[in-house]
Structures are given as C-alpha cells and as structure tokens.
Simulated assay, not measured.
Amino acid sequence: MSDKKLAVRFAEDVNRPVEMDQELALKLFNEGAVLVLKDVPPATEFGIDTHSWNVGEKFLGVKMIPPGLHFVYYSAVNTKFRDTAPRSGFFHWFKKGELLAYRWDASTETLVDDVSQQDKDNLKSDLQNIDHRLGAYPYQSYNKWLMLTSRIKKEKLEKLEPEEKFISSVTEMVNSPEGTADEDNLPDLTPRPGTNINYTQISKSRCPPNPSATEITKHHLDRSYQLEQFIEQLGNSQEVLAEVQFSFLCFLVGQNYASFEHWKHLVDLLCGCADSLLKHPSLFQDFITDLYFQMVEIPQDFFVDIVSQNNFLVRALTNLFENIKETKEVSADLKQKAQRFENCCSKKFGWCFADDADEENLPVVVQL
C-alpha cells in the first residue's frame, strides 16, 4: 500500500502493529540505514521517532532504519539522583544504506558530530561484528510515523530546522544584542543565535487595508484573509500542512514548547476559516486527516495536562465543525469527513462540540 493511501485511511485499524516478515527484514538489513552512537553511558534515555528506551552498557546504536525522515533524541540521566536532563534531538533524512555516527561528549552530556570519515568507514566495514550491539528500528509503528510526517519534504525540513540542527526542550537564552532591559530593569533575553526553529510568522492583520466596519466584523469572525496571507508567504497550501506536522513533532517528541505554541496557532487559524473552505477544500480535508493521526498519538494524560488547557482544542474544533456545517456549497466529501472526525473525537475523548456560547457575549455585526 502506498504512503498516500495510508495517509487517507481514516479508520482505527491504522494503529494495528505492522508485522515484519523475513523478506522485509532482510531488505531493511541490507538497505536500511544505521545510526551509530559512540560512548553513550548506560541508562541514558534515547529515542527515534515515537519510541524511546533507557540504553544498556552494550548499546551502540540502531540498525534497519527505513530511508527517509526520522527524529533522533536523547536525555542524560543521573542514576544516583534519578534526574533526567532536558531532551535534545535532531531530524535527519536517512539515505538507503547510510551510516550516520555521533559521539557522546561526557563534559556537555550531548551528542557531537565529530566522528571522522575514516572511523565511519571502519564502522561500516565492521557492521557484522557490531551488529549485536545495534537495536532494530521499531518497525511495528513505522506506518504511524509515516502518517505524522507525510507532508514534510526535505526542502521544508532544511528551511525550518535550526541553524545548529539540534532542537531542545529547553531554550538557551542570552542577552539581546541591543542590551536593553524591560520596565522592571531585567535584561532582555533572546534565544541563543542558531537555536531558533525557523517557523513562518502568522500575520497579525486579520483585515485588508482600510476596511469598512462591516469588513472588520467579517474578518474577525472569519480568519480566511489571514490564512490566505499565510499561504501566500509559503507559496502553496500544502506547505501549511507541512508546518503543522513539523511543529507538532517538535513538541510531541522534541518536547519543545515554542513548537506547541506554533502548532496551536496554526490549528486555531485553520479552524477559524469559512470562506477558505470553498477555495481550498483539499487543504481542509488533508488537515482533518493529519489532525486525526496527531490526536491518536498524543497520550490521554497529555491532553488533560497541556492540549486541553482552557479547552483550546475543543473550542477550535467546535469552530471548524460549525464553519463546515454552516458554510454553503462546502463539498459533501468535506462535510462527511468532518462529521466522522467529530464523531471520533466525541467517542475517544468524550468531548462535546455543541456551540453553547453565551448569546450576550457574541460579537455584534455592524451594518452600515
């Protein structure tokens, strides 16, 4: 089954583990990529994609990695005090048969990319002898990973990832170049150069220039103008979905809070559109598909603790479902997919999407 067909499947059985037969195992053994991590101390938390482990003494890396995009991450662990350091990680587009090698730097408790080409060549020629120290890629959940990354192309990855490549759950802050201070005389701090994820900024302008009072009301109820500006910045609507997926992964597996905020703003933007439903029907069908797979991956307690703060997602989805139901000429396919998604969310999370807003607090439409 192709990646595209997998991506549009909208049924619960997509979460069924994928069995690896001998033929596939042999193919991945011969053609899969290898990640070698030298000198990683025991008990270190290590993960690739949506799986993580605490490594043992003989751990040297991962083998049989399917070619394509993957996320590698780690956290140092203090076994004496049972403390886990903040998570760091990086995306890498693995090539068929590639060997990627990093070394653990004990002084900084980070992975460093300073393994010489000669050492890499030696490791590759010695794979048979080190095979028993390489864990197999968790292929049983590979289809899930494909669903979560289906829109991200290599060019998009290179544009979004930080200059230093690594994504951290804790942002290192430094004094701003201007050396200014805020009103409390505290230093103005900014993320250390090279560590920022290069997300596309959403325009704060919800209305076209010189709007009438009626237009102001319309565009504050319908964020389609804002979305069209964002699409114009990116070049096409599929780039929007790629950024939604990338920011989601950075906060889900990278534990990067700024990425959670960006994902939340993008979801809120897409859910707040009415006119754009008619202009970009495929965008919203794909958005619902992607959001479904993202929600399947988030642990239930994570929703309670973070995603459901102030009922953000419930409010956003209520807006989306209402817009689809009330906007005339919305395609039957989009209406059907939205209804299935609404039913799924209600069943899985017990959410109610009834529009119960207090009528006294609703916006007033200005007519001139």
Rank of each mutant, 00 (worst) to 15 (best):
K4S: 15
K4H: 13
K5E: 11
K5W: 02
R9C: 08
F10S: 09
A11C: 11
D13N: 15
V18G: 02
E19P: 01
Q22G: 12
Q22E: 10
L26P: 00
K27A: 14
L28T: 04
L35K: 05
L37F: 09
L37N: 06
V40S: 08
P41M: 00
T50W: 00
K58S: 15
K58I: 09
V62A: 07
K63E: 13
I65D: 04
H70A: 08
F71W: 06
F71G: 10
Y73I: 06
Y74L: 12
A76K: 01
T84R: 14
S88L: 07
G89Y: 01
W93Q: 06
E98M: 05
E98G: 10
A106N: 12
N122W: 01
N122I: 09
N122Y: 04
L127Q: 08
N129W: 07
D131R: 12
H132F: 13
R133L: 13
S141N: 11
Y142S: 03
E155F: 02
K156E: 11
E163S: 10
S168C: 06
S176F: 00
N185T: 04
D188M: 05
D188H: 15
P191G: 06
C207L: 01
P211A: 01
P211E: 00
E215P: 04
K218G: 01
L234E: 02
V240F: 03
A242M: 05
S247K: 07
F260A: 15
F260H: 15
F260L: 15
L269Q: 06
C273I: 05
D275T: 10
S276Q: 02
S276G: 09
P281D: 00
S282R: 14
L283S: 12
T289K: 12
I298F: 12
P299K: 05
D301Y: 09
V304Y: 05
N311Q: 12
E322Q: 11
E322S: 14
T327S: 10
K335V: 13
Q336T: 15
Q339E: 13
Q339F: 03
E342H: 14
E342Y: 07
K347H: 13
D356L: 13
E359S: 14
V366C: 08
